[in-house]
Design a protein around this nucleic acid. Structure first.
Lengths: 117, 117
DNA sequence: TGGACATATAAGCATATGCTGATATGCTGT
DNA sequence: ACAGCATATCAGCATATGCTTATATGTCCA
């Protein structure tokens, strides 16, 4: 039952939990667990302003949980698997139900970005 | 690497993470992982008012993460191991360094409560 | 029963947080 | 170079959060 994981400073752990404690960000990160997504997709999914999404992503990036990858006009976000906090993030995400239906919905509406660059 | 755990609603997960996202509460819960503690002990450890500690504990109790146990004058708090969120809590706490030194310090000062009731 | 101690609750305050709208920046293709 | 789209940043605002002090409640014991 007890897991053997690499411990983190309590401040860092707290910071990660605070970030993931927002429902919008938690959903975003869960989506990023299996997908690369760009800002405009999140805007469609969560129905909040592009600005709000951008600010959420900046917070996640500032502590290194996600990384960005520009391809042409778009910036694709993904989980930063080389973060020392990645293991914690994965362990938390294991409890969160799959959110991919949101992306399926986008595809149905033809709004999923598939950048060929 | 992937863990098999019992999923929780995303709202519940978010709530737990938000609660544990406060450094004081995270330390408190880490202490409660292995110990029963009462309010006055936390006051000594964290150097914030009794009221503040009490309010933190109430938030934790309101969502069922901790339970209380009155013995005489004191109310001892402990982790609620039968909460459906207990597994999530344990998985998170695995990343947090042991905080028992705080209790050791209390014992040294003779401030550790040892209720015989 | 009253005083001492432990805890809870109420009220108020300063700061943090998440959002919006407006604007700036960056890339693309004509 | 410029229009159009994607993203980032700025400023402002409403609400949430964590703390303090003051007060209420609960328990023990002389």
């Amino acid at each position: 039952m007890a897991m053997k994981v690499k411990e983190l400073e309590i401040e860092k752990t707290g910071m990660v939990l605070k970030l993931l404690g927002d429902k919008t960000r938690l959903s975003m990160v869960k989506l990023l667990e299996n997908n690369e997504c760009c800002v405009c997709e999140f805007v469609e999914i969560f129905h909040i302003s592009q600005s709000a999404i951008s600010q959420h992503l900046r917070k996640l990036r500032d502590v290194g949980l996600v990384k960005e990858n520009r391809r042409g006009q778009w910036i694709f976000y993904s989980l930063n698997t080389s973060s020392e906090m990645y293991e914690l993030v994965l362990n938390v995400l294991a409890f969160v139900p799959d959110q991919n239906s949101h992306l399926k919905e986008l595809e149905k509406q033809g709004l999923r970005i598939n950048c060929s660059i």
